[in-house]
């Protein structure tokens, strides 16, 4: 059998990290909330790095519910875009040079977003993961969950629909 020799790990990693970095860092609002992403293979975890300005209830204190919703929406959009890009990053169709020059497809647009608040967000870092339930040519359905110290005690969950960008050509 004629199996292609796998690329060196460093080459693969560099291209994946460049894609993720290009995706997340070019959105100003992601920087405004200081949301970063951890990657293990294709799995992404959003990290909401705590800052005093994220507080919505200074008496408790607790994270602003809007911030928690925004964190879930950012994680959903980046995860969906990431899933959309993955094949082209893996095949090398999207080159490192193109990624570093910020040549990325248009972003999905949120159609609707529903969030359930399960516990109040404590004044510390939060984490989130999104799961693309269905990604079609025009529409995608995504759910996401956020937690803090204990993954089994989520602070919020969300589900959302997105309009996918048109493929060129």
């Amino acid at each position: 059998m004629n199996r292609r020799r796998p690329e060196p790990m460093q080459v693969v990693k560099q291209r994946r990290d460049a894609a993720l970095c290009a995706l997340a860092s070019r959105v100003p609002y992601t920087r405004f909330l200081d949301i970063t992403f951890d990657r293990r293979g294709d799995e992404l975890t959003g990290v909401l790095n705590f800052d005093e300005k994220l507080i919505g209830n200074p008496q408790l204190p607790a994270l602003h519910g809007g911030v928690t919703a925004a964190f879930l929406e950012v994680t959903a959009i980046i995860s969906l875009s990431w899933a959309m890009l993955w094949e082209d990053v893996e095949s090398g169709t999207l080159t490192l040079d193109a990624l570093e020059a910020g040549q990325l497809p248009r972003m999905p647009k949120t159609i609707d977003f529903t969030v359930d608040y399960l516990r109040s967000g404590l004044p510390r870092d939060a984490y989130a993961r999104a799961h693309v339930t269905r990604s079609g040519r025009r529409y995608a359905s995504v759910r996401a969950e956020a937690w803090q110290d204990n993954h089994d005690r989520p602070i919020a969950q969300a589900h959302a629909h997105f309009l996918m960008p048109r493929k060129e050509g």
């Binding site: 809007g66 919703a69 929406e73 647009k109």
Partner: peptide, 15 residues
């Protein structure tokens, strides 16, 4: 939220 268009992120509208 969308650097190609300059449109505000949905998250800020949620807040």
């Amino acid at each position: 939220g969308d650097p190609d268009t300059g449109v505000i992120h949905g998250g800020a509208v949620s807040t």
